[in-house]
Amino acid sequence: MTARKPAPPAEAVAADAHWEAKLAKLRARTRPTVTLSICDDEDLKKAAATARFLEQQAKDTAEKNPGDKASQAAAKAASDHLAAAQAALDEASVELRFQALPRNEFRELLAAHPPTEEQAEKGYDYNPDTMAPILIAAASLDPLTEEDAAEFLGAWSQAEGDALVSAALRVQKTDRMDLGKG
């Protein structure tokens, strides 16, 4: 027997003439994604951060002095410098992209990796040691395998490994909704 999708109440549809369009938008939504950007060149990261700061200062000065051609030119030069610094940082960076799993898949993954007794005492809902590489690979939009994830988690620093796990886990809890108007 196939499940029948119930029709919305006629009075509700009549009250919202745009219901079909809303429903189409809801069905077309994609799952949330996050990007983890990795760059080992501290000088490039500092240069981009400094350029971002200097651009903001130059823009603030230009806004306060709209008729001053020198401050307008300085703001433009700062923006150009930031664009160049950001391009250099982007070129040296590796980006890993993660997407939320469908809800039932994420719940199954959590259930398949229950916490140890010690982890449960610390408040864990799952075993991060066994689940992390699987979650990273499953959520990755890049061809990142469980073996790759396990290798990185073993070789990278604690903070970097935690950032990798956090990106794959954080996207599972990304909320793009609000209660809006009442």
Rank of each mutant, 00 (worst) to 15 (best):
E63W: 06
E108N: 14
D80R: 02
P115V: 05
E63C: 01
L179K: 11
K25V: 02
A155W: 07
E55K: 13
R176K: 12
A111V: 03
Y126P: 05
P128M: 08
S37Q: 13
G180V: 04
K122M: 13
A150D: 11
L89W: 06
T2Q: 14
E151T: 01
A74H: 09
L82S: 01
E160F: 05
R4N: 12
A87P: 06
E108W: 03
T145P: 12
E117P: 07
R107N: 11
R31C: 00
A112C: 02
N65A: 06
A120S: 09
A85F: 02
N65R: 06
V165S: 07
D43W: 13
R176T: 06
E95S: 04
A14D: 09
E151W: 06
E160L: 09
R176A: 04
S79G: 15
A10L: 14
H113L: 09
L36C: 05
K22F: 11
A159N: 10
D90V: 00
E91R: 13
T61K: 15
L82P: 05
A120E: 15
D41A: 01
L153M: 12
R107F: 10
N104Y: 04
N127E: 09
R31V: 00
V94A: 09
A12P: 02
K22H: 15
Y124E: 14
E160Q: 14
R4L: 12
A150Y: 06
E42D: 14
P114V: 02
S166I: 00
A7T: 11
L82Q: 09
A12L: 15
A120F: 05
K181E: 15
D90Q: 09
A84I: 03
A155G: 00
K46Y: 11
D178I: 00
T61Y: 05
R176G: 06
Q86V: 05
P115Q: 10
S140C: 04
S79P: 00
A7I: 07
L54F: 07
K5H: 02
Q119M: 12
P6L: 12
A155S: 08
R27F: 07
Q99H: 04
E11K: 14
L169H: 12
